[in-house]
Design a protein around this nucleic acid. Structure first.
Lengths: 346, 346
DNA sequence: ATAATTTACTTAAACGTTTAAATAAAGGAA
DNA sequence: TTCCTTTATTTAAACGTTTAAGTAAATTAT
């Protein structure tokens, strides 16, 4: 038989209110002896309170929705893990959702999370389509944005990385190592990350007074296949380049594969630099020089922000002061796909 | 203001029962006109029913717990994704939990899932410690085991891969390519997977009348670092070997790294074979010949099994006939870290 | 000694649904 | 017409908690 607070109360000869108070440590006014009597019965039956029933009255489920494009993409497990660790620390559970960057899937998930009364949502949203504000609007719980920026009413926090600065650092680094003709295989320009990284790329070039050459910049998906194809697109331009900066590590890995198959030597003939520092980056050959995004931190801090916000009364509106943006720093990870101090040599 | 079924009922001039019936499509007895009136109000307010409140009475949360060692380990995202896809298809949500293979963490998660009234749990459990049965016993919901076998009362399904057979296939393959001295870098023997793969390794050797040599078998963690260390342990034995079969791909990748650094050429000097076929396996150099475990399928089928089981009334006990075991097949993925038809050459 | 306060509980309403049972109106059979 | 069914809807109990308000006894203050 399923055992409820009622049974415990009956067996311990107290009211259910007393049991509830003991369980929730609101027992300043409960005598030692009653408390122990209750606790004993609780233990005897291995009683665990039904959180749902409690949630109904407290209006808190301690469930957080984590909406990501695809956990199978090596960029995301770290984020998920970070969020989960912090959540667990604070007594929250995480429902996770893969959108494949499809707007209608994302919408469905947000609806589902709303129905299940998630206390909040952490989301790496999909595209900045016009429907986004409406979708987010409809969702009444606090939302934390990660990785991809966007502006809307009920967003109460953002954890971003400075893409522009990351790309700027990367390209500056390449230039300082002596590279002059820097090609760029970007992700899809409709994503904010790609757009911002392109900005950083351009700014670094102009800082060092290198002319921007749009024949050296190609746009595609954040995938290995695009890395391969992108290299070919670049080669077809018959425009000289000595290093390829890539929109992410997957592109970089694809680019390296293709270059090697075409007989180029990395980094001697052509350097390759990535972005993200996924697990694989250190394992490919040559190991990939890249820009580390602190993805564990992203998840962790996002959950931290959310937990902070959730200290306010349930259902309470966001005040402007709730809105907090954390911008995490990137870091250049020097490995072997880019020559160090190339200029000295050539 | 938060809008509930009561508001909808009032505004539509019907009872809340009617609204409930319309929403849940139990509306055979509702007139077209009432239905539409209700639906209109629902739409007007973007009303979404509070699933928790419903769950309280139906005793179904449509929440599934997915308990994994570590989503950051490349073996697991595929499983998670498979489970999530099927879950989503059937209207379930997944709460995910990382145990780091720690028993007390696992216990805590199972407790949390029980409190939150998860309808079921899919778990790649941690170690076969003596406490496991007790932990599982206490958890009253249906449990599906994945990847790692175990026996206990309320387990109502298993999705396993035949580790012994997988290893047997792999080693047989190696032998048939002409390899004779096959070293084995195993995972920790306390895990069932490692134990079974060792069985398969031994059986293949004996099938081909090759003597088992325990100097060629070393045990460590399922990690890259162990691959590196394992190679050194093998080399120290001064025992000849022409290929290393590895307990998983991470070990294989580590082994390859170490071998290459030591100046060995793969596969010409020494072959390396992995197990799992994680994403990275095709990206390392040389690309890794390995045994594919169908991990997306594992997650997917596990959720399928669970969903099937959940068609029974909530709280109903497992009958022996509920217990279903699915054993998925492995497949050899031929790449470049093992020589094909070595015997012809040498 | 009486009133006021504190302590240790209990009562009962509330949370937002689902659903079995009740009811009332309409339609059909006798 | 009267009775029986069917149809369309409502009533009310139930799900398992939390918590504000109430109460009775014990303690302290006056």
């Amino acid at each position: 038989m399923k055992i409820t607070i009622k049974e415990i109360a009956r067996e311990a000869n107290v009211s259910i209110a007393t049991v509830s108070m003991v369980i929730n440590k609101k027992d300043q006014n409960i005598t030692e002896v009653t408390r122990n009597r209750v606790l004993e019965v609780v233990k005897k039956y291995n009683y665990l309170p039904n959180a749902m029933a409690g949630s109904l009255v407290t209006q808190r489920t301690h469930i957080i929705g984590l909406v990501l494009p695809d956990i199978t993409n090596p960029f995301f497990p770290g984020i998920a893990r970070g969020a989960e660790d912090k959540a667990n620390e604070k007594g929250y559970s995480i429902i996770f959702c893969n959108t494949d960057d499809k707007l209608e899937v994302q919408e469905k998930y947000i609806e589902s999370l709303t129905k299940k009364m998630a206390d909040g949502i952490i989301i790496a949203h999909s595209s900045s389509s016009e429907k986004m504000p409406e979708i987010l609007e409809r969702c009444k719980v606090p939302i934390i944005l990660i990785d991809r920026d966007f502006d809307s009413e009920n967003i109460c926090g953002k954890v971003l990385v400075d893409n522009s600065n990351g790309a700027h650092m990367a390209v500056s680094y390449l230039i300082e190592q002596g590279y002059k003709k820097i090609a760029y295989l970007s992700g899809p320009l409709k994503t904010r990350t790609a757009y911002e990284r392109l900005e950083g790329y351009k700014k670094a070039l102009s800082d060092y007074e290198i002319e921007f050459n749009d024949k050296l910049v190609k746009f595609g998906e954040y995938r290995i296949e695009w890395g391969r194809n992108g290299v070919n697109e670049l080669l077809e331009e018959k425009e000289d380049f000595d290093v390829i900066f890539c929109g992410n590590d997957l592109i970089a890995i694809g680019a390296m594969k293709e270059l090697k198959e075409k007989g180029y030597h990395i980094p001697d003939d052509i350097g390759v630099m990535g972005y993200d520092d996924i697990y694989m980056a250190s394992l490919v050959e040559p190991s990939l020089t890249t820009v580390r995004q602190p993805n564990y931190q992203m998840g962790y801090r996002a959950m931290e922000l959310l937990e902070e916000r959730l200290k306010k009364a349930p259902g309470s509106d966001n005040t402007p002061s709730d809105m907090k943006t954390i911008t995490l720093d990137t870091e250049i990870i020097v490995r072997n796909s880019v020559k160090i101090n190339k200029k000295v040599k050539s």
